[in-house]
Structure formats: structure tokens, C-alpha cells
Write a protein that binds this DNA or RNA. Sequence first.
DNA 1: AGATGATAATCAGTAGTACTGTTTAATTGC
DNA 2: GCAATTAAACAGTACTACTGATTATCATCT
Lengths: 144, 144
Amino acid sequence: MATGFPPPLLDRLSYLLGKLHFRALEAEGEGLASLNVNVKQHAALSVLVEEGPMTQQELGQRMGIDRTTVVSVVDGLDDGGLVERRRSPADRRAYLLTLTPSGCDAEERGRHLVAEAEKEILEGLDEPDRARLRELLVRALGTG
Amino acid sequence: MATGFPPPLLDRLSYLLGKLHFRALEAEGEGLASLNVNVKQHAALSVLVEEGPMTQQELGQRMGIDRTTVVSVVDGLDDGGLVERRRSPADRRAYLLTLTPSGCDAEERGRHLVAEAEKEILEGLDEPDRARLRELLVRALGTG
DNA sequence: AGATGATAATCAGTAGTACTGTTTAATTGC
DNA sequence: GCAATTAAACAGTACTACTGATTATCATCT
């Protein structure tokens, strides 16, 4: 159909961000599909790689998602053998989410797949501009 | 709590876009609340201001939303007296969505409220950088 | 030690959103 | 003038992430 984007919406920040966000989720999701993890699950793996074992509560806070949502995210990773729910010795109510070797591997491979997918999304921009866009987004978000 | 953003997610495009998109929707929505329209409704008004009366079908295509979603968006605008559903003389199945005077007025005022809200969202950036960000987003989206 | 209150994970139910599929009325093409 | 198509509307559905309640464990106070 190629109706294009309506000019009046192109200077609406939420519209621009929404459209691009949707594309990004879609592309990253397709990229990760071969690993049997979705975007959120791979994000969780990355946090665990970077910051080490932590409880579901902590993971949720780090990722900005609800505690009950963490349960289902971790369920998937657990079923796939990518993380283990180990009882914390310090607090036996909590799990220490721990990456398995194949979890580490999946994170590593996923990172490349995501990077590729993102290059596709931003194919309208050359490399310096892609970097500029990222930098501006991070700066706009601020520290927290 | 100020847990900040986890570094591993800050180079994930979907994460950056998602967070900022959420903030943008929230801020724009609050800005528009005084006019009793939500973000999507105001976007519809803007399209109608810019491109004149059109059918719901066309509006949906222009905005990239489903035909049935258009029904509820227009319901709200109709209830608020901001648009009228006039039967198209050329095709009596279709409505020609037409702005009322107060619809025009609301669009105009809303545009300023949205602009203010967006300045808040991007308070981490100065004006040239805000313009650069918009430009990059538009270019990344491409033509359609 | 025992009682009280808080917390981690889980689960069931719910709310919000946008969709699919169907219906009605009107149009187009043969 | 009849069949196929289309605009709008509506009901039901699917998906997502939430609230609230439950269980087990921990921390605190007496």
C-alpha cells in the first residue's frame, strides 16, 4: 500500500519512538528466534552475564519489569536450561539465578544476532549516525 | 530506589526506544489530559487538520492503526464534540470525519501542550540535540 | 525461645489493548 | 438486477503485564 507516514505525526515524539520501537522488537525477536529466546529473555541473560547471579527480585528491578513478569521470563530460561534457580544460601526464600554454560553461550551468540538486527533496523543511517542516535537516546534517558 | 539503568541493556535499541517511548506517551498524555483527549485522539485530530476530512478507513491507514481501533478513537472524539461523523455524499456507507471548530481549537492547543511535554522528556538534551534526535529518528524510519 | 511483621517467589484472577471474524448497509461490476 | 466487494460497527478473543493473595522464610522485639 505504501501510504507512507503522515507528516503531522512525524514530529510527534511518541509516534516516532513507537514505530521504531516496534520495528526494533520485531527485528531483534526474529534474530533471536533461532536461539529459542525472546528479547526480554535475552536481556535477562545479558544482565546476569554482566552482573553475576542475583535474585528474581533484583533482576526485575534492574530490568524495570514486574516481579511476577520475572517469574515467566525465568520459567522460559529455566525450561531451556539457560539459567538455574539455585536456592540462595543466605536467604532460602530467594533464588540465585545462575547462568548455565549454554546460557552464557546463548547470551554471547544472541548479542551478535541483536547487533545485526539493529543494523538492519537503522539501515537508513550510516555507522556514525547510528552511534549518534544511540548516544542521544542514552543521554535523553538520563541516569535513571 | 534509583537503581539506574543496567549498562548491558543500554546498548539494546529496543530497550532504549521502549523506555523513552513509554515516557513520551506518559508525558504527552498528561499534557493533553486537560483537553480530555488522549495521545491517539490528538494524533487523529492533527491528521484531520493537516489533510482535511477523510473516512475512518483512510484515517486508520494514515495512522497505522486497525480499522476497529479507529472506531473507538473516533467515538471519543465524537462524544467530545471534536469531530463529526458526516455521511459521505459520494459513498453513504462511509463517514467523512470532519473537525468541528472546537476540534480545531483542541488540536491547536494540544500541539503546544505536546511540544512542551516533549521538551520535558528530552530535558537531558539541548535544543540542537533535540532537533538532531528527531531528524535521526525520522531518517531511521525511512519513507514508509 | 516465641510472637509479630516483613519479604521472595508463585499463582489466580484481572485490566488494558488491539486484534479477528461477523453483521449490516451500501456500492460496484457484470 | 444479481453477485461480489467494501465501510463501519460490534462481539468475542488473544496477549501482555498487572494486582492481590498464598506459602515459606527471614528479621525483630520482647
